[in-house]
Nucleic acid binder design. Structure first.
Lengths: 144, 144
DNA sequence: GATGTGCATGTATAGTATTCAGCCACAAAC
DNA sequence: GTTTGTGGCTGAATACTATACATGCACATC
């Protein structure tokens, strides 16, 4: 597994290529998320961030997360209100999550088939999909 | 479309068959959800409930919703933190939602195929799915 | 140097959800 | 017919999640 630094550098290049600034705050938050096993809530993230940024407030974290979400560097798990770093933001992939309710591990999968199936179902009733949320809860291979 | 009363009665019979009490509070909350176009947040629901139950508190609503969720009479939309009545709780169906970001309409679909596709994807990495959350945001047929 | 834009700060507040202690009604057990 | 257990309800407090809005700062451009 590649080190955190490698991903952070990749993210910086990615942002700069898009004309966005990968500020120190954004870098720190992204690095914290990469360090994390599984997903982490915004306020837990805030607590970690405060170690290096004592003045950080909820708005600080949410603004930073908004940026990271917009550029696909981070995903939000809607079913747990938690955030998880994305390791391959540069391929424009569909995203689905497998969330282990026992150990908290979050596995990201990219199934075009799943995306297509949902799109087709939606189209069959005239619905035009813009964004999908697909999350499965259950037990990962090491917990079951 | 069948009247609300019909659904409420069906729900009562369903609960009693399972040995659960369909109390007046539960009935009222379920009826309020049935009346609703689309989904509704817990606190908005609380405001409606207060018209007939002035003493209702957040805990009142959440306890009642927990009951309704457990018996499948109601679903929670994780991506909007809102709740929506289920009209066919007695068939043990998979559930997916199409949520119109323009008019707020929520359409429930039951695609075995979608469920199976996700299960297969999960199994291929050794993950055992217990509960799925599948929600699509976009534009419904009348809004696009 | 003036100005515009994007980023950050600070404070407050809104919105969502749970905890915990105690009360009441009903039914089964004695 | 009292006791006891269970499920449901109330009440108050609090925790957790997220946004709004006003202001300030830094840098690039003109």
């Amino acid at each position: 597994m590649a080190s955190i630094e490698v991903h952070v550098n990749k993210a910086r290049v990615f942002c700069e290529k898009k004309g966005a600034r990968f500020t120190s705050l954004r870098e720190k938050v992204y690095a914290l998320l990469l360090q994390q096993e599984g997903a982490i809530g915004a306020y837990e993230l805030l607590d970690s961030l405060k170690l290096s940024e004592p003045g950080a407030k909820p708005a600080t974290v949410y603004r930073t997360l908004d940026f990271l979400l917009e550029f696909g560097l981070v995903h939000k798990l809607e079913s747990t209100n938690a955030f998880v770093a994305c390791h391959h933001f540069d391929c424009n992939h569909p995203v689905q999550f497998l969330i282990c309710d026992s150990c908290g591990e979050v596995q990201e999968i990219q199934s075009e088939g799943l995306k297509e199936t949902l799109n087709k179902q939606a189209q069959s009733v005239g619905f035009n999909v813009i964004k999908q949320t697909i999350e499965a809860h259950g037990l990962c291979i090491s917990c079951k």
